[in-house]
Design a protein around this nucleic acid. Structure first.
Lengths: 126, 126
DNA sequence: TCAGTAATAGCAATGATTACTGTTTTATAA
DNA sequence: TTATAAAACAGTAATCATTGCTATTACTGA
């Protein structure tokens, strides 16, 4: 992985993400960063979101339903998705890393990690 | 949910899926079912895969990387995705349903379930 | 200040999936 | 059986998210 050259656009994208707790999509990032950089292109947004998540500076959330979302907080944590309103919420929970060992127990390969999200009804929708 | 009217195409799709352990994509289902029904359309394949997974007769696997895959075995189980070769493998592991309780502990809403997959290197790639 | 290279804007193209429409199949029941 | 209504279909167009391309611009180190 080569080193990145600074860009104002990338900085603005990252700054925007850090102000938000609602895990916006690429398109939401685009419309908001345009307030500061009206000429930024959607391609630039996608490329930088990709770069940043590859480098572990942000987190990409793929729910398998609708577009990907992004989280400015790169520290390990889990997400909850409301089945009714679709909102994506950070969970504060004890770690569940033991599930990797459970998965590895009868497996021929090597389990290195997992992706998990929880679903149900959020506080407003229950 | 209304009742379904029988269709030969849907039966063929389900039968094909049950013969496979490799979790094929919609496109793979399409090219294979065409051997029996040369005029089947890709739309029909998508509609029926959707119907069958809504009804819990098959399982849809969204990895967030590449197209969705489908599993003819609807019984609860987990999947492993190889980071090197991309293959998706069934895991035989103890259940980890306790993670729903852990996630619910400090949460204002209601956790009803989870989606999880494991990744790493498969037996051939490790 | 300048040269080299990475990043950008603008736009075209792709890939997966869904929507539409006229025709065919299935289920029901006279 | 045949008639009828509803569901499913084939074929195709459209959509949505995302990636690729190319000429231009912006960083960076000398």
């Amino acid at each position: 992985m080569q080193q990145l050259k600074y860009s104002r656009q990338r900085e603005s994208i990252k700054n925007f993400l850090m102000t938000r707790k609602d895990h916006p999509t690429a398109d939401v990032v685009y419309t908001n960063v345009r307030k500061e950089y009206p000429n930024i292109s959607l391609g630039t947004v996608y490329r930088n979101l990709s770069l940043l998540s590859q480098r572990g500076e942000i987190m990409k959330i793929s729910t398998g339903d609708g577009p990907d979302r992004f989280d400015g907080n790169p520290l390990p944590h889990y997400h909850f998705i409301c089945k009714r309103c679709g909102s994506v919420i950070d969970l504060e929970m004890d770690d569940i890393d033991q599930i990797d060992k459970i998965a590895n127990a009868n497996f021929g390969g090597v389990v290195e990690g997992h992706v998990a999200y929880f679903y149900g009804r959020c506080e407003d929708c229950k």
